[in-house]
């Protein structure tokens, strides 16, 4: 488990998180990830590390409310789910990579 990257979800606006590895925390907003996504410009919740994390700006266990979709996200990047993408199935974009 943890090696196939087929179960990716978006947690607090951050895509590319393996559902099979991530432990849910109270207040997390989680949704399925359909295909490639850009992370929201700002963290939508205090992210990751504990209060000692240099980027943590919400001291003492306070958590900001999970924000809605970030208005700063550029519109051209929104992409509807592809009909051939299955939950837990492949998430690759069209075409080739190297």
């Amino acid at each position: 488990m943890g090696v196939c990257f087929d179960c990716l979800v978006v947690v607090n606006g951050v895509p590319d998180i393996r559902a099979c590895q991530r432990v849910v925390e109270p207040g997390d907003t989680i949704r399925f990830q359909w295909g490639a996504e850009l992370p929201a410009a700002q963290p939508q919740k205090r992210e990751a590390a504990g209060a000692d994390h240099p980027g943590a700006d919400h001291p003492g266990g306070e958590r900001p409310d999970p924000a809605g979709p970030d208005p700063a996200r550029p519109e051209p990047h929104a992409r509807p789910p592809r009909s051939d993408e299955q939950s837990g199935g492949s998430r690759s974009a069209e075409g080739e990579a190297w």
Binding site: D16, G35, L38, E94, A97
Partner: peptide, 10 residues
């Protein structure tokens, strides 16, 4: 460095 797949036209 190679990133994960990103939306088209990023």
């Amino acid at each position: 460095l190679v990133t994960g797949p990103l939306p088209e036209a990023t």
